[in-house]
Simulated assay, not measured.
Amino acid sequence: MPLQFVEHIAIRQLDEQAPARLAYEQLLIRCDRAAGYLLEDENAHGRAAALHRHTTAVRVGIARRHRRVDAESATLLDLQRARFHRRRQPRRNTDPA
């Protein structure tokens, strides 16, 4: 009951990608797995499995977004580095004298 109270009052207010929510959901998964094992409760096993699938999907989405941002940052850095090197090269005199 106390975990349900915390979930209804605080956790549902958080973004599903918030670290605190993901940590809390990991705690719930472990509790449901333990209850499922110790009490031979199939419902607890099912809740743990469903929540695990959900949090895994959320974490994969976060990882993909981070990889995309890293790739975009690397591309931008390469462009800026190339621009810097072009500016540092001595200019050739194209004026025929």
Results as ranks from 00 to 15, higher is better:
21 R>Y: 01
73 S>K: 09
30 R>W: 05
3 L>W: 12
36 G>H: 12
94 T>C: 10
43 N>E: 13
55 T>P: 00
21 R>L: 06
25 E>W: 03
48 A>F: 03
91 R>V: 07
38 L>M: 10
23 A>C: 08
49 A>M: 10
59 R>I: 03
68 R>Q: 12
63 A>Q: 10
76 L>H: 10
62 I>V: 03
83 R>A: 11
89 Q>M: 14
14 L>T: 07
79 L>V: 04
41 D>E: 11
47 R>P: 00
5 F>L: 10
32 D>F: 15
97 A>G: 14
65 R>D: 00
44 A>Y: 01
37 Y>G: 13
10 A>G: 03
82 A>K: 13
27 L>D: 07
44 A>Q: 03
56 T>W: 03
48 A>W: 02
63 A>L: 06
37 Y>R: 15
74 A>P: 00
24 Y>D: 04
30 R>L: 07
5 F>T: 08
96 P>F: 11
74 A>R: 15
8 H>T: 05
58 V>D: 00
8 H>Q: 14
24 Y>G: 03
50 A>W: 00
95 D>A: 04
23 A>S: 14
74 A>V: 05
68 R>K: 10
60 V>P: 01
46 G>T: 15
50 A>F: 05
20 A>E: 15
76 L>I: 01
34 A>R: 13
13 Q>S: 12
96 P>K: 11
66 H>N: 08
21 R>C: 06
84 F>S: 02
21 R>P: 03
65 R>G: 01
39 L>C: 14
73 S>V: 07
22 L>H: 02
88 R>L: 14
68 R>Y: 02
58 V>P: 00
72 E>R: 14
52 H>Y: 08
52 H>L: 12
24 Y>P: 02
96 P>Y: 08
14 L>W: 14
57 A>G: 06
73 S>D: 05
90 P>N: 10
37 Y>N: 15
10 A>D: 06
91 R>L: 12
94 T>L: 14
57 A>S: 07
14 L>G: 05
4 Q>Y: 14
88 R>C: 10
19 P>T: 07
68 R>T: 09
16 E>T: 03
82 A>D: 08
66 H>I: 04
95 D>F: 12
44 A>S: 09
8 H>Y: 11
40 E>N: 15
6 V>K: 13
75 T>V: 04
19 P>E: 00
55 T>D: 01
49 A>W: 09
11 I>R: 02
42 E>W: 02
43 N>C: 04
34 A>N: 09
52 H>E: 15
63 A>Y: 03
60 V>Q: 11
27 L>E: 09
13 Q>E: 15
39 L>E: 13
83 R>W: 03
92 R>G: 07
96 P>Q: 08
70 D>G: 06
84 F>T: 02
75 T>R: 15
